[in-house]
Simulated assay, not measured.
Amino acid sequence: MKHRITTDRTIWATLASAAVVAAATGCGPTTTDAGAKDTKATSPSPAKPKDAFDSLTGSQISSKALAALKSASSMRVSGTVPADDKTNQSMQVNVAMDTQGSCRGSLTLPGTVSLELLRKGKGAFYIKGNEKFWRAMLTELAKDGEGLTRKQANAAVDMLKSRWVKADEKSAKDLTATNFCDMDKLQDLGGHSDVTRGADVVVAGRPVAVIYDREDWRVTTVHVAKTGKPYPVQITTTDSSSAAPDTLVKFSEFNKPVDTTLPPADQIIDANNLG
Score class of each variant (00 low, 15 high):
residue 9 R to W: 08
residue 10 T to G: 02
residue 11 I to M: 06
residue 12 W to F: 12
residue 13 A to R: 08
residue 15 L to R: 03
residue 15 L to E: 07
residue 18 A to M: 15
residue 19 A to E: 06
residue 20 V to A: 13
residue 24 A to E: 00
residue 24 A to F: 03
residue 26 G to M: 12
residue 27 C to W: 05
residue 28 G to K: 06
residue 32 T to P: 05
residue 34 A to Y: 12
residue 34 A to H: 14
residue 35 G to T: 09
residue 43 S to T: 15
residue 45 S to L: 12
residue 47 A to C: 14
residue 47 A to S: 15
residue 56 L to Y: 08
residue 56 L to S: 02
residue 59 S to T: 14
residue 62 S to H: 11
residue 62 S to L: 12
residue 66 L to E: 08
residue 67 A to M: 10
residue 69 L to H: 00
residue 71 S to M: 04
residue 74 S to I: 01
residue 74 S to R: 05
residue 74 S to C: 05
residue 74 S to P: 03
residue 75 M to R: 11
residue 77 V to Y: 00
residue 80 T to L: 09
residue 80 T to F: 10
residue 82 P to Y: 04
residue 83 A to W: 04
residue 84 D to Y: 04
residue 84 D to K: 11
residue 87 T to K: 00
residue 87 T to I: 00
residue 89 Q to A: 07
residue 90 S to I: 07
residue 95 V to H: 03
residue 95 V to R: 00
residue 97 M to E: 02
residue 98 D to Y: 04
residue 99 T to A: 13
residue 101 G to F: 07
residue 104 R to W: 00
residue 107 L to K: 09
residue 109 L to R: 12
residue 110 P to E: 10
residue 111 G to H: 10
residue 119 R to D: 03
residue 120 K to N: 01
residue 124 A to T: 12
residue 124 A to F: 14
residue 124 A to K: 14
residue 129 G to I: 04
residue 132 K to S: 11
residue 133 F to L: 01
residue 135 R to D: 13
residue 139 T to C: 07
residue 140 E to M: 15
residue 140 E to A: 15
residue 140 E to T: 14
residue 141 L to F: 15
residue 149 T to A: 13
residue 149 T to G: 15
residue 150 R to Q: 12
residue 153 A to L: 05
residue 153 A to V: 02
residue 154 N to G: 09
residue 154 N to P: 03
residue 156 A to D: 01
residue 156 A to G: 04
residue 159 M to G: 05
residue 165 V to G: 06
residue 166 K to M: 08
residue 170 K to P: 02
residue 176 T to Y: 05
residue 177 A to F: 07
residue 177 A to Q: 00
residue 179 N to E: 14
residue 181 C to Q: 05
residue 182 D to T: 03
residue 185 K to M: 13
residue 185 K to I: 11
residue 188 D to E: 09
residue 193 S to V: 07
residue 194 D to E: 11
residue 196 T to A: 02
residue 197 R to K: 14
residue 197 R to G: 13
residue 205 G to K: 07
residue 206 R to W: 04
residue 209 A to R: 01
residue 211 I to L: 15
residue 213 D to T: 12
residue 215 E to I: 09
residue 216 D to L: 08
residue 218 R to W: 03
residue 219 V to I: 14
residue 220 T to W: 05
residue 222 V to A: 15
residue 222 V to K: 10
residue 225 A to N: 08
residue 226 K to Y: 00
residue 227 T to H: 12
residue 227 T to N: 14
residue 234 Q to D: 06
residue 239 D to V: 04
residue 241 S to R: 10
residue 241 S to L: 11
residue 242 S to A: 15
residue 243 A to D: 13
residue 243 A to E: 12
residue 245 P to M: 10
residue 247 T to Q: 08
residue 247 T to V: 15
residue 250 K to M: 14
residue 252 S to Q: 13
residue 254 F to A: 11
residue 258 V to S: 01
residue 262 L to M: 15
residue 264 P to L: 15
residue 264 P to S: 14
residue 266 D to M: 06
residue 266 D to W: 06
residue 272 N to G: 05
residue 272 N to F: 01
residue 273 N to M: 06
residue 274 L to N: 03
